[in-house]
Simulated scan of single mutants.
Amino acid sequence: MLVNITRVFTCLIIFGWATPQLGYTQVRIVLKPSQWKVDAPSFYIQEVVDGRKDPQNIGYTKNGLDEKVAIKLSPDLSKAIQVFVNQSLVKNPEAAPITLQVLYLKLKEEQTSTSEVTARAEIKLAFYEKEATRLKRIYVIEHYEDEVFPTSGKSRILDAQEKRIRGLLEHCLTKFGEERETERLKTEYVDPKVLDKPSTIDQLEITKGKSLGHWHNLITFKRSMGHHTQGWQVSYIGFSNREEIIVPFIFSLGQSQTKEATIRGSEYRVVDAYTFSFGSQVYIQLLPNFYANVTLNIPIGIEMLRDRQEKRSQNFLIGIGSKQGLMYIPKSSLGLVLGGGVYQRLQTSRMFSTDWGFELSIGIKF
């Protein structure tokens, strides 16, 4: 029996890990013509070099089916940025030619609450001057911008991201111009081959510890066995994994039956309870996909009683409960959730005021 249970749990965990991700489609962004004010620019961009670690796309958005859609700049990143900057930084004999290397450019979006989606654009650029056979790196800058949208406004995100790319470029080029004018640039001679090598950057320094996170929805079914009761509960759990310590919102519907041993000798023959509970949990990650959780909730409901003469009565229930346990949550966007733990509860039952026990749960993440 134990071997069979172990096999079942192993298969469920493997299924959760192995749930396939949806494939990517693509969409292309064309940077709209625009200019920003530049007073007598002392430089122009002679060349734009795509030095990103992953040149396949600049990030993703999500379509109406919540599928990831890869984003590319049209016709390609170097040409798109070159055309854009040339509108404001016009080549002239008195301006210095600058080589611009794009080390990192990424568009991201995640649902960060039940009603909000956060879109982010990130960039890192390096500026160079060429001196005969030598190459001088004169400035490096990284920048990011976030914008929050209601979930009903997802269709506006892609257009906003196009505008945000232009905003990132304008910000970085303006800052470079200011630093150049005040002669605060810190120059460094580098190997000219650096322009031919992809960067190793896969995250900005300024966004470390500022993850967008992702909103997760869990539906779980729990079976509980307590000192006085046994029953079931269906719960919805919603949370963002933006922080290491997660505090999700939870609400549940459940039914429990008082055990025969508890009602033996009393005036009642059957005692059932129907409750709605709400509260919050704290999840602390122990290992990848495995979390310790502590729950505090408030159950409200009705206790249905039937005495030995078949007379029915009702009792209003309210209380406070806590739970401690472990939960397996897969990384995949769709997968099985498994959990177990112990619980304690105080409530206004006619049969008992305290109960405790253990529970097992299974559910789905979506």
Rank of each mutant, 00 (worst) to 15 (best):
S74N: 13
A132W: 03
T200A: 10
E67C: 08
S155I: 08
G340D: 11
I302V: 13
G357R: 04
T112M: 09
Q203C: 00
L100H: 03
G16D: 03
F316I: 11
L185K: 05
T133H: 11
F43V: 05
I206H: 00
Q309R: 14
K208L: 10
F366H: 12
G209E: 10
I298Q: 10
I13V: 13
P41Q: 03
P41R: 07
P150G: 12
K79W: 02
D50Y: 08
E260N: 10
K311C: 04
S224M: 14
V90P: 07
A126N: 09
S277P: 04
W232G: 11
I141T: 14
T112S: 10
K193Q: 14
N86Q: 14
A119F: 00
G301A: 02
G325C: 03
R164Q: 15
I13M: 09
F352Q: 07
Q309W: 14
T262D: 05
S361N: 13
P93Q: 05
T6G: 13
P198K: 02
I284E: 08
S42G: 15
T133F: 01
P330G: 03
K62V: 14
E147F: 07
F251N: 07
W232N: 15
E267F: 09
E188F: 02
E131W: 03
Q255M: 09
K68R: 15
A292H: 04
I141F: 12
K91W: 03
K259C: 05
L73K: 07
E303P: 01
P97V: 08
I237A: 06
Y144V: 04
S224P: 02
L338P: 02
Y189E: 14
V8F: 09
D196Y: 09
S224T: 12
L296F: 07
M225E: 13
V282M: 14
E142K: 02
W215Q: 05
G51E: 09
R156A: 10
V342Y: 10
K311Q: 13
N57Q: 00
I58T: 08
P97D: 07
S256Y: 02
L336P: 00
Y328M: 06
V8L: 14
V247H: 14
I123R: 01
V83Y: 06
V337Q: 01
L168M: 06
L286F: 06
L338Y: 06
I250P: 00
E131C: 05
C11V: 11
N4E: 12
V337A: 05
L296G: 08
P20Q: 04
Q281I: 05
F352E: 06
G59P: 05
Q161R: 08
S211V: 10
E131H: 08
Q257Y: 09
R156G: 06
Q255G: 11
D355Y: 06
F176T: 07
S240A: 10
L103R: 14
K222T: 14
A96E: 11
K37G: 03
L195D: 00
T10K: 12
V30S: 13
A273P: 00
E178Q: 15
T275M: 08
P198E: 09
